[in-house]
């Protein structure tokens, strides 16, 4: 009897919990206002006012355009904050960004005051926000071409290096004979920074383009090789026994057992390789290739055009984090089976 009483009570609790969940779920799905968005919108409107109203101490064009952009963003955020109830899934996605958007607006105000309005930071070394905007608006053909050239060099070099590293890693982990010959070479040459090969590469390869592709590939190759190798070598031996008793061929053991089992490690190598090849890319472009973001940085510094340099740095940061995000997404897709077992 007491047992049934407990059961009854717990059932009632469960019902109440469920209705509570329902209410909060409904509240989350149809919020009246997005307070974070409203706050961020107000900050950006304030930033627009700070940019537009006081006189610039240091005259750089584009002040009104920047103010207009800030006001536009602020207005949109205010609108999104007010219309949160009708914004659907896009609004849900935007929601967690609220605090960051507000802080970015505050940062812009501080930056604007320090540079353009009060000229507290020494000039050629620091650029004002409107200075950056001017670079983007006026030098975009050259900057855009640099981005495309860098992306192409990175894509070809990284793809070649990663593919070669993957194959080399699997071969090293699989074959004792290959391991015997390649392992010492890898040990000796692998840890050298790829940029140290710069003079040799530019001498050996017919063009500076192919030389930098090689260097970028080399930078990606080493970590991918080492981690693929350790992944393949670390595969549980019982996996092979199982597959062999079930009639698996050598090719099946490599492609369907060793490779998928090593894939988490391979991705660690791919992440490390991406970072390494990116830094080599910039150095190679600075020293040999007369194109790309590295070259643009070098050129801007040569002319003491620090505004251009900061503009290129921002583009570079966005490009790098974009590529990393892309890699994360493909890893999550390929390694969905890991969800819940391994956390990054």
């Amino acid at each position: 009897m007491s047992a049934s009483g407990v059961a009854l009570r717990s059932r009632g609790d469960a019902a109440r919990d469920a209705s509570g969940d329902l209410a909060t779920a409904r509240g989350a799905a149809r919020p009246g206002l997005w307070l974070g968005g409203l706050a961020a919108g107000l900050v950006w409107l304030a930033a627009a006012a700070v940019i537009a109203l006081p006189e610039d101490r240091i005259e750089v064009g584009r002040t009104q355009e920047l103010a207009l952009l800030a006001a536009l963003l602020g207005g949109l955020l205010l609108l999104a904050g007010l219309a949160a109830a009708w914004s659907g899934r896009a609004g849900e996605r935007l929601r967690p960004l609220g605090p960051w958007l507000a802080v970015l607006g505050l940062g812009l105000i501080g930056w604007e005051l320090l540079t353009a309005k009060f000229a507290l930071l020494p000039l050629p070394f620091f650029a004002s926000p409107q200075g950056l905007l001017e670079v983007y608006l006026e030098d975009w053909p050259r900057l855009g071409e640099s981005v495309l050239r860098s992306l192409w060099l990175l894509a070809t070099g990284y793809a070649l290096g990663a593919a070669a590293g993957f194959v080399a890693g699997v071969a090293l982990g699989w074959s004792r004979a290959i391991g015997y010959w390649v392992h010492p070479v890898l040990r000796l040459i692998g840890p050298l920074p790829a940029t140290a090969w710069l003079p040799v590469a530019f001498f050996v390869f017919p063009s500076s383009g192919s030389a930098s592709t090689f260097l970028v590939a080399l930078a990606a190759w080493f970590p991918v090789t080492v981690l693929t190798w350790s992944g393949v070598a670390g595969v549980n031996k019982a996996y092979y026994d199982i597959a062999r008793t079930l009639g698996a061929s050598q090719a099946f053991l490599v492609l369907k057992v060793a490779v998928p089992a090593a894939l988490p490690q391979v991705f660690v190598g791919l992440f490390m390789g991406l970072g390494a090849s990116f830094s080599v890319l910039v150095v190679a472009e600075m020293l040999g290739v007369k194109a790309g973001l590295g070259w643009y940085l070098q050129w801007a510094q040569g002319w003491a055009a620090y505004g251009n340099m900061y503009a290129a740095l921002i583009v570079m940061a966005l490009m790098c984090s974009g590529l990393t995000t892309l890699l994360f997404k493909s890893r999550d897709r390929l390694l969905a089976w890991q969800k819940g077992t391994v956390r990054w």
Binding site: N236, A238, Y239, D241, I242, R244, T245, L246, G247, V257, P260, A261, L263, L335, W337, Q338, T341
Partner: peptide
């Protein structure tokens, strides 16, 4: 040599974690 007509079941299930 191993043959699928003789199968072995280990103490550990040793399932492939990447397969359903």
């Amino acid at each position: 040599a191993p043959d699928p007509s003789r199968v072995l079941v280990f103490q550990d299930p040793t399932l492939y974690p990447w397969r359903t």
